[in-house]
């Protein structure tokens, strides 16, 4: 099997390497990929949309159908993880561990016994619990707000610099995952729980598709942002720029929520009680 697999791979690779001789040279400005469609995008996008970052302009304006369905794919992946892993009913565990923070004593509460009052002194801990590293905990607590601020900057500044909805959404989700990693899962579920993340994921797709429907209702084509000019103020070209921003915000919300949602399901095997 190993030899057979290696032979197949070498045959495919050999054929592909043999045919690279016919490819255009690397970085050739006259290659077919650079001569047909992309010159139009490069030369006209700043006139059409007032967005200097060509990638953002093509992503959310010229090819916004494509991006809309990519967002739907990400949303569908979140739902698929939910249906594959999520346990239908959370059963109460046999025993729960609580930690009294000032003294560091761990209490094991058997099923049916009285649980400690919900105060700052007691916290529930996982069954496999290692003491939190103080430096990691404090550093991440200080870093998370700045990572989130940077994520919002990436979303909002995607018109003028590298960035946009996908990157900003993933960075925002990564900040929440960092919080869940350095504290425990139940702490982060208190901040953003499963219902919230599912609602955010759906509402991000809704913002994107809703912008398209709104354009349709205002008498233009689906996702033709120039129809939004009377609502947003400014001329139709500036409306393209604002429409791209709205759509990018929708993408960012959906991607952020789906990343957090998938992480919750993977890290707790769908039970949402104990995590990584």
């Amino acid at each position: 099997m190993r030899i057979f697999g290696l032979l197949t791979v070498l045959l495919c690779g050999g054929l592909l390497i043999y045919h690279t001789a016919d490819f255009p040279a690397w970085g050739d400005p006259a290659s077919p990929a650079s001569t047909h469609l992309s010159p139009y995008y490069i030369e006209h996008s700043i006139d059409d949309t007032m967005v200097p970052n060509l990638v953002t302009a093509v992503l959310a304006d010229y090819r916004s159908y494509d991006t809309m369905f990519e967002t739907v794919v990400v949303f569908a992946a979140g739902i698929a993880c939910f249906f594959l892993l999520r346990a239908a009913k959370s059963k109460t565990p046999e025993s729960m561990l609580y930690r009294h923070i000032p003294t560091g004593i761990t209490l094991r509460i058997e099923k049916g016994s009285k649980t400690p009052p919900d105060s700052a002194d007691f916290e529930r801990i996982d069954s496999v619990w290692v003491p939190y590293d103080l430096i990691i905990k404090i550093t991440c607590r200080l870093l998370v707000p700045f990572i989130q601020l940077f994520a919002l900057y990436v979303v909002a500044h995607g018109h003028h610099s590298p960035g946009g909805g996908f990157q900003g959404g993933v960075i925002f989700g990564a900040a929440l995952i960092l919080f869940a990693l350095t504290h425990n899962l139940s702490n982060s579920l208190k901040r953003i729980n499963e219902k919230t993340s599912a609602l955010f994921a759906a509402s991000g797709v809704l913002v994107y598709a809703g912008t398209g429907i709104l354009c349709l209702l205002l008498g233009a084509n689906f996702l033709d942002y120039s129809a939004l000019a009377p609502l947003l103020g400014g001329d139709p070209k500036m409306a393209h720029s604002h429409g791209i921003l709205i759509v990018e915000i929708g993408v960012a919300i959906a991607v952020m929520a789906v990343m957090v949602w998938i992480y919750y399901n993977l890290a707790s095997r769908g039970r949402h009680d104990e995590g990584l």
């Binding site: 590298p162 990157q167 993933v170 989700g173 990343m259 992480y263 890290a267 990584l276």
Partner: peptide
Amino acid sequence: VDVAFTEASVGAGVSTVFFVAA
């Protein structure tokens, strides 16, 4: 640059965390 930015946040950040969690 946009692709590199996405890969830095997605590939090196989130997907590694997914792998470690799995």
